[in-house]
Design a protein around this nucleic acid. Structure first.
Lengths: 174, 174
DNA sequence: GCCCGACATGTCAACAGTGGAATGTAGGCT
DNA sequence: AGCCTACATTCCACTGTTGACATGTCGGGC
């Protein structure tokens, strides 16, 4: 249940309405933890009832501005510092790899080459992001850069792996 | 909905009961696509009703052995070859990174060092697996090795990234 | 003065996945 | 003969996530 913590994290910087939060999710967190309206508004209600948030102000159009409470800040810190067990990662890509033998060698190779291409494409997208965002030295930018670098390295790794796997497949077939 | 495809993939090698399938999930697929009993048995029923599987034999203790049908094989191939959009990956690790500024620099560094350690630990676990599994040259072994190498590279990348991030954090603080 | 687009909140149905519990049978060991 | 373990299935309640839909209001430009 990390959605709530994402919301607490965003509100810890400054108060916001549900609408504001949605926009912040779309811009900064979309690649890390996407969220939909129904989730955000639902969770805002629950968090408020639980005392982790409060309605700090009401504005026009029924706007409710939510602010984090001390209790909310405590929960955020608790979450950030807690040791959590490695969550098992589901990977559709790897699942396909397991069953690659049900395709012809040519098809399997094509699939892996496609993977390499997809990773390379994503890598280019991230490089584009890197160029376009104006990296201030506010905390969110600093942390955002760390996350971006992770993505860059991840995509490079995926591409290299896929190309390696293609060669490997060629070898075993001989 | 990849669980069904995982099941089709396993049954494409040879027929099995729900119980057998569970064991196969636990051994070969646990790190890639974990599944619970309730899911497996439920899906078995749905897939049979949909005509992708059939009950090939019934045994003692109410055992039902399921086999993949031609239609099921076709669906498996379709899934393996279809081009799918990059699924958005949720990452709790990165989510935490985004909010690292709500911790003290010392705590944040400790968190990243912990990440590096966790990745290194997982890396060691995978190396252990590599040593212990007897890699035949049956298809599942070949593909399993590809998946394992992915894991190995992934963990190495995570560790390096975390160590890099620690240094980066040190720099900005100056 | 009016209309459009941005602002703003909310509900609902459906599905995937988790975890636990209930139930029962066959085979092997003592 | 009795018991334990492995085999085997089914049901249920709950959480998280998605996507679609419904509803309404404020402010600026024409």
């Amino acid at each position: 249940m990390s959605l709530r913590h994402a919301m607490l994290g965003l509100l810890a910087d400054r108060p916001a309405s549900g609408y504001d939060l949605m926009k912040r999710f779309e811009t900064s967190l979309s690649n890390v933890w996407p969220a939909t309206q129904s989730q955000v508004y639902g969770e805002l209600g629950k968090l408020t009832k639980a005392g982790l948030l409060e309605v700090a102000a009401e504005g026009p159009r029924g706007r409710k501005e939510y602010a984090i409470t001390d209790e909310g800040r405590a929960e955020l810190r608790r979450w950030l510092t807690e040791a959590k067990p490695d969550p098992v990662r589901r990977s559709e890509v790897l699942l396909r790899v397991f069953f690659l033998n049900h395709l012809t060698p040519v098809e399997a190779t094509a699939y892996l080459m496609g993977e390499a291409e997809r990773a390379a494409g994503q890598h280019r997208v991230l490089e584009e992001v890197e160029r376009n965002v104006d990296w201030g030295d506010d905390p969110l930018s600093v942390n955002g850069r760390l996350a971006l670098e992770y993505g860059l390295r991840f995509m490079a790794m995926r591409e290299e792996w896929a190309r390696w796997a293609v060669e490997e497949l060629g070898k075993t077939r001989k």
